[in-house]
Every structure is written in structure tokens, then in C-alpha cells.
């Protein structure tokens, strides 16, 4: 019995566990990867975890979509969902810009590996 209660208590927060796992993996990828493209991917995973967080937050137990209809009493909170639409748009813009920069970096340096770029930059440091 106890074990069921425990499972219920923690699985009830299932969404939030996923959020934390995604958030930390994304954050780790951004920090640990040396490939600029993979950094962008990591950044996306990190942002998506926040989207999930907001969406889970707005869900009300047993609540339906927030549309007024006969017989529907409990509604989910639409505000976090709407907010996250905005955040998704912002995230797409940031990703697009990041990818555009990666393309330009590839043209300028011939590589998208951070350590190789840093080696090239280090040599230039002495000149300028």
C-alpha cells in the first residue's frame, strides 16, 4: 500500500521529472560539446524543457481544453500555454540566428569545432 502511495506521489510529478532531466541534459550538452551545432541542439533541448514546464503547470487535473461548453466544469489554465507559444517563437528566432552564425563561422574559419576555432583565434590574438 505504502509503495503505491509513494509511486503515486512521485509519478504525479512525472512531467516535472522529465522537465528536470531534459533541462539538465540540454544544459550539459551546451557546456560540454565543442561542436557549435551540437551546442545549438543542446540549447534547444534546454528551452524545450521550459516549454514542457509551463505546459504542465497550466494543466488542471481532469480539466478540459479552455473552451466554454455545456457540461464542462473544470478547465485547464490557458495562460501558461499562450505564454509558451510566445517563448517557442522566441526560441525559433534564436535557433535560426544561431544556425546562421554557425554557417558564417564555417565560411570564415573552415570549421565548427570550438577548440579548432579557439586555436585559430589564439594565433590571431598576437597580430591584432
Amino acid at each position: 500500500m505504502d509503495i503505491f502511495l509513494l509511486a503515486d506521489e512521485h509519478l504525479g510529478l512525472f512531467n516535472y521529472w522529465i522537465v528536470i532531466v531534459l533541462m539538465m541534459s540540454g544544459f550539459y550538452v551546451v557546456i560540454a560539446q565543442h561542436n557549435l551545432l551540437k551546442k545549438v541542439v543542446g540549447l534547444n533541448i534546454f528551452q524545450v524543457s521550459v516549454f514542457l514546464f509551463y505546459i504542465s503547470m497550466g494543466k488542471v487535473d481532469g480539466g478540459s481544453a479552455p473552451i466554454f461548453k455545456d457540461g464542462v466544469e473544470v478547465l485547464s489554465n490557458p495562460l501558461p500555454h499562450v505564454l509558451i507559444l510566445t517563448a517557442i517563437v522566441v526560441g525559433v528566432a534564436a535557433t535560426a540566428l544561431a544556425l546562421a552564425l554557425v554557417v558564417r563561422i564555417k565560411h570564415a574559419f573552415g570549421t565548427v569545432e570550438e577548440d579548432e576555432i579557439q586555436a585559430i583565434e589564439h594565433d590571431e590574438e598576437d597580430i591584432a
Binding site: L43, A94, A98, L101, R104, I105
Partner: peptide, 14 residues
């Protein structure tokens, strides 16, 4: 400037 902008983008977005 490109790598500086990229680095700022990553940290700024975080």
C-alpha cells in the same frame, strides 16, 4: 566578431 556573437547568443539565451 562571429564567434563573439555566437558565444554571446549561447550565454544570453541561457
Amino acid at each position: 566578431a562571429l564567434t563573439a556573437a555566437f558565444r554571446y547568443l549561447i550565454m544570453g539565451t541561457l
